[in-house]
Design a protein around this nucleic acid. Structure first.
Lengths: 152, 152
DNA sequence: TGACTCATGTCAGCATTCTGACATACGTTG
DNA sequence: CAACGTATGTCAGAATGCTGACATGAGTCA
């Protein structure tokens, strides 16, 4: 039923499996966030702001793994709808520190609980050791991919 | 320098780290595929066809983690440019089995080598044991996320 | 056979994200 | 101080992917 001796079996590729995992996680998150009228990027932005108040647009973009242009579009919508606030004038330089409004914080609460339940489901069946193994291995992969390990 | 006692530290979330890994992998793949004028989805489609000739549009979509509508648009472009072929009439039902043309196969060769080098870089620094651990853990995560483990 | 369910291919419209470009502000270096 | 490189916020246009919808074909079951 399967192919044999084709060279690179997708079924044995860690890269492919990583993409599959990430896709499954994203789909599961979308499923629970949709009833709340929130997209994954939308949620990521609010969660970042809850944990690190005052992040700038560019910092939020890096944290949510999108471009700063994309985050800017999102922030303008969130600001218009009253979920976040930014000062009219930058306190220093061009950087506009962003903060959650009470409304934004309320909106995040349900979403955060929903996402946490998804993550809990993902980790169900994994031992503590396996979780820390996964953490260490994924960090190593990121490090290698970014080429931090070059030079002498 | 970091926040403490905020509840959920993004720096300790396996879900966030999974997204970060996947994002780093995708960025690395885009970097090496761009000079070849190929996107990740584009490459994924060709690679799938190389390994499993005759896949249908819907099967390709599932394998590349996009909707069948998205894959349909891509296939029409690839067919127009002579990278793949589909029969004018479905042999059975509505399913159109797709195959690489020699041109498609040639185009894939360089891309496949480039992507393989990215995956090799990602896995550099991991022992055989760590790789198989990661494989098992990621599969477990996918399984749990999809809810295959319910019922009695 | 006929009704029902499901999967497929495809078209159209919309949402999201990206690339390109520009002006501005900071830090460093001469 | 002046020039340079870098980072930021933002606008505009293009690419990419998604949702919704429809017709068609296969399989199931009464």
């Amino acid at each position: 039923m399967s192919q044999e001796g084709v060279g690179v079996d997708l079924e044995t590729s860690l890269g492919y499996l990583l993409k599959e995992s990430s896709s499954a996680l994203r789909a599961a998150m979308e499923e629970v966030l949709r009833p709340l009228g929130m997209s994954v990027t939308h949620y990521s932005c609010l969660e970042l702001l809850a944990q690190r108040p005052g992040l700038s647009n560019s910092e939020l973009a890096r944290g949510a793994f999108v471009t700063r242009q994309t985050m800017n579009v999102l922030l303008q919508a969130l600001e218009r709808d009253g979920y976040v606030t930014r000062p009219a004038q930058p306190p220093v330089g061009k950087v506009l520190p962003t903060r959650l409004t009470p409304r934004g914080r309320r909106s995040l609460e349900k979403a955060s609980a929903a996402v946490r339940s998804v993550e809990a489901r993902m980790l169900a069946g994994l031992t503590e050791t396996e979780q820390s193994d996964a953490f260490r291995i994924l960090q190593r992969m990121i490090h290698s991919l970014r080429g931090d390990n070059e030079g002498a």
